[in-house]
Design a protein around this nucleic acid. Sequence first.
RNA 1: GCCGAGGUGGCGGAACUGGUAGACGCACUGGACUCAAAAUCCAGCGUAGCUCAAACUACGUGCGGGUUCGACUCCCGCCCUCGGCACCA
Length: 817
Amino acid sequence: MQNEYQFETIEKKWQKRWQDSGLYSVDIEKSDRKLYCLVMFLYPSGDKLHIGHWYNYAPTDSWARFKRMQGYQVFEPMGYDAFGLPAENYAIKKGVHPKKSTENNIRFIREQLKALGAMYDWDKEINTSDPGYYKWTQWMFLQLYKHNLAYRKKAAVNWCPSCTTVLANEQVIEGQCERCESEVETRDLEQWFFKITDYSERLLEGHDRIDWPEKTITMQKNWIGKSTGALIGFPLADADDIIQVFTTRPDTVYGVTYMVLAPEHPLVAKITTAAHQQDVKAYIERTRRTKEIDRLSTEREKTGVFTGSYCLNPVNNKRVEIWIADYVLVTYGTGAVMAVPAHDQRDFEFATRYGLEIIQVISPHGKPTSEALECAFEDPGIMIHSGTFDGTPSVQGKQAVIDYLQQNGWGEAKINFRLRDWLISRQRYWGAPIPIVYCDTCGETPVPEKDLPVLLPDQVEFSGQGQSPLSTNPDFVNTTCPTCGGPARREVDTMDTFVCSSWYFLRFPNPHLSDKAFDPEIIKKWLPVDQYVGGSEHANMHLLYARFFTKALYDFGYINFDEPFTRLVHQGIITNAGAKMSKSRGNVVNPDVYVEKYGADTFRVYMMFMGSYEEGGDWNDEGIIGINKWIKRVWRLIHQINDQPPQGNENDRFKIVLRQMHYAIKMIGIDMERFHFNTCISRIMELINEMYLYIQDVPVAEQNATLIDVMHTLVKLLAPFTPHLAEEVWHELGNSSSVFDVSWPEYDEEQLTLDTIQMGVQINGKIRAQMQFSADASDQEIIEATTADDKVQKYMEGKKIVKSFVVKNKLVILVVK
RNA sequence: GCCGAGGUGGCGGAACUGGUAGACGCACUGGACUCAAAAUCCAGCGUAGCUCAAACUACGUGCGGGUUCGACUCCCGCCCUCGGCACCA
């Protein structure tokens, strides 16, 4: 036995032995008590593994090890989300082919990952940029295409001039590119979309069946943005067309004083009268030039112009002006809004600015307000100036008006969603090619499944000029039509990398299948993922897309579940001096330095002990030395006991140690379930402190011999947190099997109470004394003993006890008057 | 502006369904060991008052109120920090 803990040799030794013995390779065929524990896989950019990765992976691995010891068959895989922009940008800058740089990064990162000492089943590693994988990403595309969930349309899209590609709405943050923070422009392009909007309702419904953080579910709900209201048709006064509007306030329809179309609305050209042609044209031009970010700003004053045309309010035949204004978005609802300035703040501001009429149709008390409104009245109230609806409470008025509109053929009830279809085309090279060809005779044609994968060619030019790099390789572009055999062109855009990650959890259990994406039998056994852990920033992207894919695959009959991740936990963010760590800020903390200096076990424990896992916190390495010392202290304790084994049967002091042990087992069990790692470590620290006091205060010859058993339990408790140290010690103690193959210790509730208990005596809410009681004393006895006490009597002089009771093992409560 | 989370010692953070606030650790101080230092082991450590000391008392979980025998925990009104959404009709 060594005196000092040598983490360098011990950690390497066990990492190698674990791998050689295949300890963590899961037999996928056996799935009883299966537990699929997944962390969001890696995006292998040049940054390598940073603190955030460690924080995601190491504590989750401790959780998985804990579950394994509880008897679960834990499957914990790792892989690489290897397609994506950084590799390609690096190629443009340094001239290194993305394939090469990605390979290099992965090779390096794999080693870093191994240093973590996690239970990853390396036989199941996947790489989304491997043709063996993206073949099936393309297959997924074809399934969606077959079921009309993938379509192409010309659309105004978000264009990042720096990344030279389009972005999904989710990737645009405050009008800027999520990745490079450039201002996003609007361009009209033919693009591929996935029809996620078909699943809006079901994506909401599924929330009730998953154990996810409430805030994540709320974020998704808000993002999907369901709103209930009505679709109302306003016929043009002097032409045939009808302007459809969506409103959540059909009860205010009598208050419509004008109509607003989005500048991009298709009817604008048709209805603009000659006299207003010039103004309207100028306004549209101006809108187009306005940057997305400015247009989205709510602070900006609302502007618009009159088109010269009128439409008729179906309920009262009122003639209302039709305006265009950029506060109306063409992408939401019908791109047109019925303006009710009295009851909508935006319409109110617009009407005030342009001197448009304001008619009050909802009032708090059922009578018109005498003075002019200062702002819109948006609360519910009583309907007025609304024909036969006068006097109806607006809440009921909503449905009543809808019924009325419906009876007359003017409108209908309608549910609208904020969610838009998922734009997946990227004008970039490093992604999975979209398996579509364009034939002059047959048109848009999907590549037959048997011809997959559509291989990504190595030879392309990275112009960075906005044109898809694949278009620069004629051998790739020119092909033959799978239907007619005539000449055809391949689609040159690639898929958003979020497509690759929308189904990867189905690939992990069977990564080497060459004839299908996944084996339905295996998937049936191992999915859904029991525990998923990753950052909350993916709430409206990856986590939504993966749910959409799962529901689609369920509908196609490939899988028998429709929610991919049963339980989800987000790790918090580790900041540096309050700022988010990022390469551009240059404040990224490199975990390798600490792993080299203190070892993986120390680093793991430190990350877990730092604070609340789900809240994260600011990075500060001051305490890490303390954890390192603690780990050495643990090592010394175990060796000290083992070198001088206890011989006697001392019991009074030993009971305290025993109680601490049972308490630790109990609390760690509870806290691990909740991902409260910091308190788990505290409980082990307490046990170790108690054990030290014991061997110090009680001579070896008297020490209770069963202290050895406590020590074995201690090693088991340590195992999930310090896997290398625990495994080493476990073997030193004479065990031949892995500590991860033994079962988690159980606690005895009876051992948690000591013979005598100290309780506080609370008189009128204040602690006034501390008293000892035997554990089996009745409440009656305790209260009697308390009231007889001198100190307590002092507070009761001349007063009567009104109420008295005992909070078990804690307090004696006396209320006196 | 809207939605969500959070504000506790010098610091990181505990506290289950309202029941002894500050577990555990860092830093600091003292003791033991040592010729000495480091390492280690042990002890102390919210603030103020009183005291040689022990004890005791008051105050104390962002601020101001409230409910309760009793509030970090529940209710009302504010302030600040962080995350998300942002003209969604």
